[in-house]
Write a protein that binds this DNA or RNA. Structure first.
Length: 492
RNA sequence: GCCCCCAUGGUCUAGCGGUUAGGACACGGCCCUUUCAAGGCCAUAACAGGAGUUCGAGUCUCCUUGGGGGCACCA
């Protein structure tokens, strides 16, 4: 495949989410695979909807995901500027060209009148498109009114008859009747272009070969083709990706749904995923497989493998419900692939954030025993907090072994104390070997004995493996805890 | 309402005219086991419906149904 030039063109009006991340990923993959360019373009022509910090969030999110771009607002490039708000004059120039070639016209109708027209048409169950009042004006007349300072927009002159056929890579030919297409506004009264014009002009000027975007754009794609053709430009290859549906499969994710998700420790926003304890590798792998597949069984891919194996032809056009269980599965697996030092460094910030002082050397020792027990990194707090937090006050009841009396339980602890005190150190192997021998002699089951010890030593009913934990906690503290538990069980 | 798109288990998907319809997640059971996990084994579960085309249709065509998306001086 020839090198492609693709662009990821988000608008800084909200958070970077999973859907955009996937689009960006596919852009990145096909660019890297073909040795082409991945371009970042900020579509900020709507000044009213701008959200402070949103552009920065896009950069951060893409960087976290490891999707580096070749041209963009921050790094420049041969086709800049890459922020549409800085390209106002370019769009106006092209709008003028369209007007001169009779493919666009000035419109002086007020928003109020437009709204009335729309409502009226809807009431009569007609197509709610512009009624064409200003389309009938002569160019001379319109120019006069513009010169007189009258407020105006520019509309694209869509053909009123015939059909327009475009080709989408995943869906084949799509034909629409031109009368269904509106005379869309392409330049607002503030002089800034709307998406339809801005994106079309930029895609051409930036030599974009493949437009990969959400299928929400499908209904207006014929319009974009028409604009390309009006200029006499060659169209890019159109690739409309399926949309992501909420987990229930009932519709797109709404603000409300997103807020609900957080309660389960999930999110569709990239910036939250990191603090929730997800790995960017897992995000990439998971999201890549929602709408794309390689074969009937491979499902773990590094970014490098994705670059090698990705192809537009294997994209799936049908909408996909987001499945967070699968995401967790991927994340748990990617955590397990981490090295001990790497994992320790990654969970450290989570302890810091809740005010638990966890030192790196200990975390490195803990890493191997909690690794396969974590779904997300923040699970480490619950899993390994016991190694750093003060020991809890226990009641005698929780120290009782299953079906065992108080005295029996106490004797188990007593026996352990005498065995442990003879050992130079409580290494995992040594303590476990000794205790396994003892279990039989004591006449209780391993479950009973180790259950008591787990509670006495870790202070928890559920913990990482007992003897590994003992080694990490260290002989001194272990002995103290055993003594304390033994006293607690003495009948008063 | 109108236009466009989509349609294999609960979910993500493989399948590109001839398969016992494959994999994964989730769910259930069993094994392993000092808890929790992990792992191993097993089970349940799908071609939306109807017409065609064809010797033969999950695969091609049409209709119906269902779902999704779009109908702004938003993107």
């Amino acid at each position: 495949m020839d090198p492609v030039r693709v662009r990821f063109a988000p608008s800084p009006t909200g958070h970077l989410h999973l859907g955009s991340a996937r689009t960006a990923l596919y852009d990145y993959l096909i660019a890297r695979k073909t040795g082409g360019q991945f371009i970042l373009r900020i579509e900020d022509t709507d000044r009213k909807r701008l959200v402070e910090g949103a552009e920065e969030e896009i950069y951060k999110g893409l960087r976290w995901l490891g999707l580096d771009w070749d041209e963009g607002p921050d790094i420049g490039g041969p086709f800049g500027p890459y922020r549409q708000s800085e390209r106002k004059e370019i769009y106006q120039q092209y709008a003028r060209e369209l007007i001169e070639n009779n493919h666009a016209y000035y419109c002086f109708c007020s928003p109020e009148r437009l709204n009335d027209v729309r409502l009226e048409k809807q009431k009569r169950k007609e197509l709610a498109v512009y009624d064409g009042t200003c389309r009938r004006l002569t160019l001379k007349e319109a120019l006069g009114r513009v010169a007189a300072g009258e407020k105006h927009v520019v509309r694209f002159k869509t053909p009123k008859s015939g059909t327009t056929t475009m080709t989408d890579l995943l869906r084949g030919n799509i034909t629409v009747e031109n009368r269904m297409l509106d005379d869309y506004i392409i330049v607002k009264s503030d002089g800034l272009a709307l998406y339809h014009l801005a994106a079309t002009v930029d895609d051409h000027l930036m030599k974009i070969t493949h437009v990969i975007r959400s299928s929400e754009w499908l209904p207006t794609a014929p319009l974009h083709c028409l604009i390309h053709r009006a200029f006499g430009w060659q169209e890019p290859v159109w690739v409309h990706l399926s949309v992501f549906l909420k987990p229930s499969g009932k519709g797109k994710m709404s603000k409300r749904d997103a807020a609900e998700l957080i309660k389960d420790g999930h999110s569709i926003f990239i910036k939250e995923l990191e603090t929730l304890g997800y790995l960017s590798e897992a995000v990439l792998n998971w999201v890549a497989l929602m709408g794309w597949s390689y074969d009937d069984h491979t499902e773990f891919f590094t970014k490098e493998e994705l670059v090698k194996k990705f192809s537009l032809e294997r994209l799936n056009p049908s909408p996909a419900a987001i499945n967070f269980q699968k995401f967790d599965y991927f994340n748990a697996n990617y955590i397990r692939m981490l090295g001990d030092v790497e994992l320790a460094n990654m969970i450290k910030p989570f302890f810091d954030s809740v005010g638990i002082k966890a030192d790196l050397p200990t975390l490195i020792k803990i890493a191997p025993i909690i690794k396969e027990r974590l779904t997300t990194l923040d699970d480490a707090i619950e899993m390994a907090g016991l190694f750093f937090k003060p020991f809890p006050d226990l009641s005698p009841e929780v120290l009782l072994g299953k079906d065992m009396s108080r005295e029996e339980s106490r004797s188990v602890i007593q026996a352990t104390i005498s065995i442990f005190s003879d050992l130079p150190e409580l290494s995992k192997d040594l303590s476990e070997t000794k205790m396994r021998e003892t279990v039989e002699a004591l006449g209780f089951s391993a479950g009973q004995v180790f259950g008591i010890l787990r509670m006495a030593i870790t202070g928890q009913k559920v913990s990482p493996p007992l003897f590994e934990s003992i080694e990490i906690i260290g002989k001194k503290v272990v002995m103290e805890r055993l003594e304390k538990a033994q006293k607690l069980l003495q009948v008063e």
